[in-house]
């Protein structure tokens, strides 16, 4: 396949960036999207040019590092996969592909397509954990948890923190991510002790980081590689309002 790539190039956080055009040829449809960029980078390196920087790690859809907006869609045109799981057979020979970084004030560009997602880490640090001592491993089924609830908590826990929800949202809102992280703990007994303080602190940190508000467009969930559902956002709102009204935190 022969492709025209328009890629966001930006030297560093303080330099203005721009879209640059590159041509690649003889791309196999079986290559992953990242492998296609590897090919481009080899060509650029050989020419002595600066290769395109992009984040990646596992390349098997579980770490959440790969982050690109491809033709206006985070993780590209396919549903429920990450960029590293996207293959060139999803494109046509001769296509022009626009590749941009996640766009959010809270995710500043480090270089080219690499953004700093530290804001998500700080939201987790604010309360997305369990700090009470839950003791040794309990016997199986000692704490009865209905299968349905366990499944729901697990679904929320599948969020890999990639940030595609923020990138997809017209408001750069982090509500889907925060709601998944709040839900996975709020649904299970181990999470109950710190339930109220957790949601209060995580939402406060989310606001501190400068993410937008949720207009319920549903773009986040539609673009999420793990298909985290909007029910989580409703739960987050319930948890937050309930906690603010009833917690002892002033």
């Amino acid at each position: 396949m022969n492709l025209t790539l328009k890629i966001w190039r930006q030297q560093d956080a303080n330099t203005k960036g721009e879209m640059k055009t590159y041509e690649v040829s003889d791309i196999s449809p079986d290559m992953s999207f990242l492998e296609m960029l590897d090919v481009l980078n080899e060509i650029l390196s050989k020419k002595g040019e600066d290769p395109v920087h992009f984040d990646h790690d596992c390349r098997e859809g579980i770490c959440g590092m790969c982050s690109m907006v491809i033709n206006g869609r985070p993780h590209g045109p396919k549903q429920a996969i990450t960029t590293c799981q996207l293959h060139m057979r999803s494109f046509k020979d001769g296509d022009t592909i626009l590749i941009e970084p996640w766009r959010a004030t809270a995710f500043p560009v480090v270089k080219d397509l690499v953004v700093d997602r530290g804001a998500f880490d700080r939201i987790i640090q604010a309360g997305g954990y369990i700090s009470v001592n839950t003791g040794g491993t309990p016997d199986a089924n000692e704490i009865p948890i209905p299968k349905k609830v366990a499944d729901e908590a697990f679904d929320s826990a599948t969020c890999i923190g990639c940030g595609a929800c923020v990138a997809a949202c017209k408001n750069a809102s982090a509500m889907l991510f925060v709601s998944a992280k709040v839900s996975q703990l709020a649904l299970l007994p181990q999470g109950h002790v710190e339930r109220k303080t957790r949601v209060e602190k995580m939402v406060a940190q989310m606001d501190e980081e400068g993410f937008g508000a949720c207009t319920n467009t549903g773009a986040c969930s539609a673009e999420c590689p793990k298909e985290i559902s909007l029910e989580n956002i409703a739960r987050l709102n319930r948890e937050y309002v309930g906690a603010r009204l009833s917690s002892e935190n002033i």
Partner: peptide
């Protein structure tokens, strides 16, 4: 205003495929 500030730099390509 909050939402516009949160986006900052906009996208060159935007797709309406995932929302109404």
């Amino acid at each position: 205003r909050q939402n516009m500030a949160a986006r900052g730099v906009g996208y060159a390509a935007s797709s309406g495929a995932s929302s109404k």
